[in-house]
């Protein structure tokens, strides 16, 4: 297809120039500025909500991490700490099942069983 010639260029330039003159200046309504601020507040509201939710989520996550760290570092009972952490298996066994604690009847039963 042939490209348009110079005559068309001039015509088009003239049409564009006339178009600029033909477009009326837009009338500004009284609601223009309030509309802008409504738009700003609406977007602020949305972004603030997202920010608030994410901040709460982060706070909750940090609190949970701290709680878990505390639970893991602090021993459950002092005895357990002494019994399981600082003594050998045999010592721990001896502490838990000392011969004095076993009832006499139980000892008799055990002796009988052995014989």
């Amino acid at each position: 297809m042939a490209l348009p010639n110079d005559g068309f260029h001039d015509e088009l330039a003239r049409a564009f120039a006339e178009y600029r003159e033909a477009c009326p200046a837009p009338e500004l309504s009284d609601g223009f500025m309030p509309g802008i601020w409504r738009g700003i507040e609406a977007r602020c509201g949305f972004s603030m909500t997202v920010r608030r939710i994410s901040r709460r989520f982060v706070t909750a996550a940090v609190a949970l991490c701290l709680l878990m760290a505390i639970l893991l570092t602090i021993p459950r009972t002092p005895n357990a700490a002494v019994g399981y952490a600082s003594s050998t298996y045999l010592e721990a066994l001896a502490t838990d099942h000392s011969i004095e604690d076993i009832p006499i009847t139980d000892l008799e039963h055990r002796d009988g069983g052995v014989e």
Binding site: P26, L28, G35, I36, G39
Partner: peptide, 23 residues
């Protein structure tokens, strides 16, 4: 708003697009 009017060619929507620009 004048530029928008010439760009979009719909006077009834010029103000909405203008507000969007300033937001």
């Amino acid at each position: 708003l004048g530029t928008i009017a010439r760009l979009i060619g719909r006077p009834e929507d010029v103000e909405d697009v203008g507000q969007e620009v300033f937001v």
